[in-house]
Nucleic acid binder design. Structure first.
Lengths: 200, 200, 200, 200
DNA sequence: AATGAATGAGTCTTCATTCAT
DNA sequence: GATGAATGAAGACTCATTCAT
């Protein structure tokens, strides 16, 4: 099992990340169990430690992978269109991802909202590129006067992402009752852009 | 004598709740340590179990207390005034609480955003009265046309509370960098009511 | 099992030290097994950690106890008599101890001779009082010309202790074949004082 | 080709012995790490097991090599001269070795002084030829009356080797403070032959 | 013959909970 | 009712050894 493993190794690593994401998503960093993660990934407990130095590092890598995917999603948002259209596209990409690979997103969202001293710096670090990408989606809108001028774009980006996140949390927390996944993009965008007074 | 003893018992219970809130706020349900909680409350480890059946129940009571306080805050919001004024008043009551007794709020906020199967039902249950109270603040505004008509008030209440929460999380997560506590009420209300396009 | 434990606690601690000494004596710091130590001391594994913060600290306390006993032995050596008589008395006290409580001595001797970076500082620290006591046995002899003048007393004390130690090691190592325990005091003293040329 | 391959094999084996000696010298049998040994020897972990059946056997071979070198050193001691001269020469050969290849000696010395059931028989077995060689250095001295007559030469050989060993231990333990390596041969010989009363 | 990924038994350590005092 | 020592299940992590390539 020595030399020609290059691709096989990547596969094992990926399996570990996936099963770890599932466990962390359901039980959190403390509650997750390395034994279970390795079993789900079809390997021995010791193997986990051939790929990740510690549970915490494994967690960090799951987080990093989740954030990497988020950045990729933003990158796919088409260039043209109004701010509203682009934000909806962004939300739809998110939701699509969420349908396929929920665990990674759950881990990112939960940690982003948990602000635990032990893990928060990790989240912030990994999410920075994502927030920057969202800012770049907002920027043209700002220039065209589609956004209020009294707030830095960085803060607005944070608020948009926060609004989306809020809806995911509410979706998961309510067991899918409300809001429905397919409603989230439009709802997030209208609340973010127009607020609760509604369009005028 | 009996009355005094009863009062003393209440005091011990309160001290336990306070120190438990502090530990849960900093370390989460799993990370918190019963030993430390009892020490901080100036009593023995065994005493905790004279007041609460288990760590999980203690956590639940901290959560309940946090939610009870939230309901009280909403109750204090003066009756008259525009929707905007009342929401700002609500936000200010929150922030005032947060300055004095951060841990309880932190526990509630974190659990509300963590949607863990093990604790989420608890949160939902305890927060229901709070959300109902917020709905009642929104209702007159709805009747006066200060709120869009295409969304149930219950959902809008959730979104307002979510917006506030989001800002607390961001405040804690950024180490107080942004937003400043004193800016949160106005910011939450304008984002909630007017959105990112701004007032028109 | 709460309040009136004072004496009982000391007993548990003593039992733990004794069984730990036995395990460390036989298997060394790394080889010893906390599980076995607790079983031998008739308590649960967790109890060990109520008394000692870690295996390493437990080891340190065994070492300290072993050294404390050594100092006591030297203290019992009668004041008067020739250097030779006093050294023999010292050796006999050692040997008597060794017959009763071999494990503590074995641990001290082995660590003193193992000079491992991790434990050596501990040994040195705990043995200092012992060496000082031996020096004080040598000092009157030095003044009376019973010791060569070209070496500091501190070095000679080290050499005498070393000679004794050597014989214990040889005794243990040979399975008791040679030297016999009862021969050690006289042998150590004659070798130390007169050397291999013999008395002249 | 076969010869070359054989030489290459010998080289790998030697490298493994050297790096193993270094690890065992620093961390002991239990503390040493096969991974690190193989890395230091510039080969893969599995390779170790092509040369040695187990960690314990590797340790045994390091011990054997250390003892083999010791025997070689004694063999180099010139034939003629007084007992004192020959013993000093022996000590000087030891010290010279110690300057060049400390780890092997450290392993031998530590194990010789550790009398652990698991390894002691090994040490004894490997050290026997060395002790015999030292005896042969002592024998002519005995015949010439340079040694006391009341002790078997075998025991005196053991005591001389022990005295040297003691000084190495003290040298290593004190971090080189005392005794200095270059003082050891003379010091060992005078203490061994004349004792602490000094020459008379 | 060399490799190094996989293995899993073995260990220390933690900590919620119990219960005798 | 308070106490805090005892408990032991649970879990992260290590590492010598194996063996497919």
């Amino acid at each position: 099992m020595a030399r020609l493993a290059a691709a096989a190794k990547q596969q094992v690593r990926d399996r570990l990340l996936v099963s770890a994401a599932a466990q962390f998503a359901e039980h959190g960093l403390d509650g997750a169990n390395i034994d279970r993660i390795s079993l789900d990934a079809d390997c021995a407990k010791g193997t986990v430690y051939n790929y990740f130095a510690s549970k915490e590092e494994l967690f960090g890598q799951v987080l990093a992978e989740g954030c990497r995917r988020a950045v990729e999603r933003v990158a796919k948002v088409p260039e043209g269109g109004t701010l509203q259209q682009r934000l909806v596209a962004l939300g739809e990409a998110d939701v699509a991802e969420l349908r396929d690979e929920e665990p990674f997103m759950k881990v990112v969202v939960r940690e982003a909202m948990s602000f635990r001293p032990r893990t928060y710096p990790l989240v912030i670090e990994h999410l920075r590129p994502y927030l920057q990408a969202v800012e770049e989606v907002l920027l043209p809108g700002r220039e065209r006067g589609e956004l209020r001028g009294d707030r830095p774009v960085a803060e607005l980006a944070l608020l948009f992402v926060g609004t989306l996140t809020l809806l995911y949390v509410q979706h998961w927390g309510s067991g899918g009752t409300w809001p429905d996944l397919s409603d989230i993009p439009a709802l997030a965008v209208t609340m973010f852009l127009d607020g609760a007074r509604g369009e005028r």
